[in-house]
């Protein structure tokens, strides 16, 4: 197999943090004897991103995603472990590495506030030493896909969030990077802009760019990611495909049946025995049965219909959103 475009092995990063004592006297004590401790933001992280692959880095706020991104792009020196991008150590050789890497932070601009978008692109092309003719071609193509043409003459500070996001994505692609890193790129965007960004990122991956994406938008993950890495409290807790993640999170479908006359307790007990799976009934007489992993829906449905008289039937797919929300909640309680 080919080498990954970017990888980490046993990546650790700790921060020295100062803890503040409470109150006025605490503040005074802090002034003289600050209380410091180290905080591990990333612990023992192994990550591979191959050419043409979109890897999602997921996890609750503070899990260590941005820290990982910063280690990969040479902004932070790892405390321990190895990081390579295109075979180079990004910390030691940041300038060389960032020539081949495109980065978009959803919460931060890489453009120049006072310059018109086109001026900013000209400058980026000059900084990246993209030959003029190549640059013009690329900009034309990006402007068409992202509909940037009406924005090119505007100063960056006058762009709306969605317009800026489109301009930022184009900016991170002008030098045709081998690795594209997107840190919460769709934060705060409307569905139209999100869709446009996703289409372009997909397209890029198809052409061979390796993509690392951190996001809280699980539609991004569903639409884009070939593989996801879930981190929690600085550690990787899951790695695999999106369907595998669903299974791992206990994502089971449910059959919901609205009944004409509410079944009695005996009937429900009988149903539970037959489907060998939890059965619930709500106040409106809707029976809900969990479809156990590996059992066809039709099978479960037949069992249910043989016991109750159905007026309406639906099958509920778990959303990744809901599953992760449950999981984050359990993780926060320390039971996941």
């Amino acid at each position: 197999m080919r080498d990954p475009v970017a990888w980490t092995r046993g990546l650790h990063r700790t921060f020295a943090v100062t803890e503040r004592r409470a109150g006025l006297s605490g503040a005074l004590v802090d002034l003289i004897a600050p209380r410091r401790r180290t905080h591990a933001a990333v612990v023992d992280l192994d990550l591979d991103v191959f050419a043409g692959e979109i890897v999602g880095l997921l996890g609750p706020n503070g899990a260590g995603k941005s820290t990982t991104v910063k280690c990969l792009t040479g902004l932070l020196q790892p405390t321990a472990g190895e990081v390579r991008v295109l075979g180079l150590d990004p910390w030691a050789r940041r300038t060389e590495v960032v020539r081949r890497v495109g980065v978009m932070f959803g919460q931060r601009s890489q453009l120049w506030w006072d310059l018109a978008v086109r001026e900013a692109y000209d400058l980026l092309a000059a900084i990246h030493r993209v030959p003029r003719a190549t640059y013009r071609e690329r900009l034309d193509a990006l402007a068409t896909t992202l509909e940037l043409t009406p924005l090119l003459a505007k100063p960056v500070r006058e762009l709306s969030l969605g317009q800026r996001a489109r301009c930022e994505l184009a900016a991170s692609l002008l030098h045709d990077p081998a690795l594209l890193v997107l840190d919460e790129p769709t934060i705060g965007l409307d569905v139209g802009v999100k869709r446009r960004l996703r289409t372009l990122v997909r397209e890029r991956a198809r052409q061979g760019t390796a993509v690392l994406l951190t996001t809280h938008d699980l539609a991004d993950v569903d639409h884009l990611c070939d593989r996801v890495v879930l981190v929690d409290k600085a550690r990787v807790v899951f790695e695999g495909t999106v369907p595998e993640l669903r299974t791992q999170l206990g994502g089971q479908r449910r059959v919901r049946v609205r009944t004409a006359d509410r079944p009695g307790d005996d009937e429900l007990a009988a149903l539970t025995r037959r489907v060998r799976s939890p059965v619930r009934i709500d106040g409106d007489g809707v029976v809900e049965v969990v479809v156990p992993a590996g059992r066809p829906v039709a099978h479960v449905l037949r069992e249910v219909l043989s016991v109750v008289f159905a007026e309406d039937v639906s099958v509920v797919e778990p959303t990744l959103e809901g599953l992760l929300a449950d999981w984050y909640e359990r993780a926060a309680e320390g039971t996941a």
Partner: peptide, 13 residues
Amino acid sequence: SGQLATDLLKPLD
């Protein structure tokens, strides 16, 4: 402001 991050992501000294 943290803007230094995007500065350092440009291949410049």
